[in-house]
Structures are given as structure tokens and as C-alpha cells.
């Protein structure tokens, strides 16, 4: 039962929705999201196992997960941008900057701490990426029914999560220094709430994608 938390349940539900809706999707990017959700779920369960069963640090597991998170979200953004603009160079430059920051922080901490500075930087970049996506949508002359537009909801979930986690990122040092129960609870519940918003939006996005795919097929 220790593995059943709000985070793992929301991740599992989102993964199951994704599996049902996107397993037969023709675009590889959507299938990649299902794989990523499975990976996230396994990391979350693994993190709980390491900390609560094996009583060891799970920092390196989350540090590794951050690479996958950055790669997946960046590639998905790149794919969504491709409908409007194709800038491969932008993606490569961003990933290069990310890896430099990541390894520098990892080396400076002696592989012992979570790379929170890189995480904060990554969050800011993803917030900007989300806003840039909105800008492209506003600029685009073609009208889209946003209520059922899968990429829009995926980006919205991402924006809510990374923008909403800004306060927690800013106060990361405080959380690490202050080991009181209240401090831990606040961080835990904020992230639970953000996870629910994130996976809720993503699940809805997968359903939109599924509906779009099936309605297109039935119209042939």
C-alpha cells in the first residue's frame, strides 16, 4: 500500500488513458508519451521503494528521470512547433545548454544532491516554450477548435505544472533546510495538486487525440 499515493495513482490513470487512446496512434510522438508515462510511474514507484523500503537516497533516480523528462517534453514541444515552424537548431541548442547545466551541477554537488537549479531553469524554459506555443496559435490564421485540440491541452497541462511549481523551486533550499513536518506536507500537497492538474490535462489531451483520430477514420 505504500506505493499507492496521489502521485502514483494520477500517473497510473493517465498512463492507462494514454495506453487506451494512443496505442494505435499513427504519430510516434504520442506513442512516446505513453512510454514516458510508464517510465514516470516506474520512477515514482522506484523512488518510494528506495526511500521507504530500502531506506536509501532516491536522488540519483530522480536526477536520471530529469534527463528523460527534459528530452521527452522538449521533443514533444518541437513536434508541436513543427506545425507552425520547424526549428531543429533551437531544440539542439536548448538540449546542449540543458546537459551542460545538468552535468556541471551534478559534478559540483558530487552526485549527492538533486539538480534543483537545472530543474528550475528547465521549468522556466518550458513555461516560455508553452507561452511561445500559445503565441503561435494566436498568430496562426487557421482556426482551431481549442476545446478539442489535443496539443493545446497537453501544453496547458505542462504550463500549469511548471509555472505552478515555480514557488516550490524558489523555496527549494528552504525545504531542504527545514525538516519540519509542515514544510514537507506543504511541498507534498502542492506537487500532488500540480500532478493532478498536469495528468488531468494530459489525459484530456489524449482523449481529444483519440476522438480526432477515430472521427477522421469514420469519416472516410
Amino acid at each position: 500500500m505504500i506505493y499507492v499515493t496521489l502521485n502514483t495513482v494520477s500517473e497510473l490513470l493517465c498512463f492507462l488513458v494514454g495506453l487506451f487512446c494512443l496505442a494505435n496512434d499513427k504519430q510516434a510522438i504520442w506513442k512516446l508519451l505513453v512510454v514516458y508515462l510508464l517510465f514516470t510511474l516506474l520512477v515514482e514507484v522506484g523512488g518510494i521503494h528506495l526511500r521507504r523500503v530500502m531506506h536509501t537516497s532516491n536522488v540519483m533516480l530522480y536526477n536520471f528521470a530529469l534527463i528523460m523528462e527534459c528530452l521527452t517534453v522538449s521533443i514533444v514541444f518541437y513536434q508541436f512547433y513543427r506545425n507552425h515552424k520547424n526549428k531543429m537548431a533551437g531544440l539542439i541548442i536548448w538540449l546542449a545548454v540543458f546537459f551542460v547545466c545538468y552535468f556541471l551541477e551534478l559534478l559540483s554537488s558530487g552526485f549527492k544532491n538533486f539538480v534543483f537549479k537545472t530543474t528550475s531553469f528547465m521549468s522556466i524554459v518550458f513555461v516560455l516554450a508553452s507561452m511561445y506555443y500559445y503565441y503561435l496559435i494566436l498568430k496562426d490564421e487557421e482556426f482551431r477548435e481549442l476545446k478539442s485540440y489535443a496539443p493545446f491541452w497537453w501544453v496547458s497541462g505542462t504550463l500549469f505544472f511548471y509555472f505552478g511549481s515555480t514557488a516550490c523551486n524558489v523555496f527549494y533550499d528552504y525545504f531542504m533546510g527545514d525538516r519540519t513536518q509542515l514544510s514537507g506536507l506543504v511541498r507534498y500537497w502542492i506537487f500532488c495538486f500540480l500532478d493532478i492538474i498536469l495528468y488531468g490535462c494530459w489525459s484530456y489531451s489524449f482523449i481529444c487525440r483519440y476522438k480526432q483520430r477515430t472521427s477522421r477514420r469514420s469519416s472516410f
Binding site: I137, S165, C168
Partner: peptide, 27 residues
């Protein structure tokens, strides 16, 4: 600790309301 916790919660709420308004505007 309580003050900082309240501050973090309020800041998070503000940071969630901002994208919400952005979404409304885009809609």
C-alpha cells in the same frame, strides 16, 4: 515555518491563476 508555508501556498495559487487567465484570454 507557518508563515513561509502560507507564502508558498499563496504564491503557488497566484502562479496557477496566471496561466488560467491566459487560457481564458486565448479562448
Amino acid at each position: 515555518t507557518e508563515n513561509i508555508a502560507t507564502l508558498i501556498i499563496l504564491t503557488t495559487i497566484v502562479f496557477l491563476i496566471a496561466p488560467l487567465f491566459l487560457l481564458i484570454f486565448i479562448n
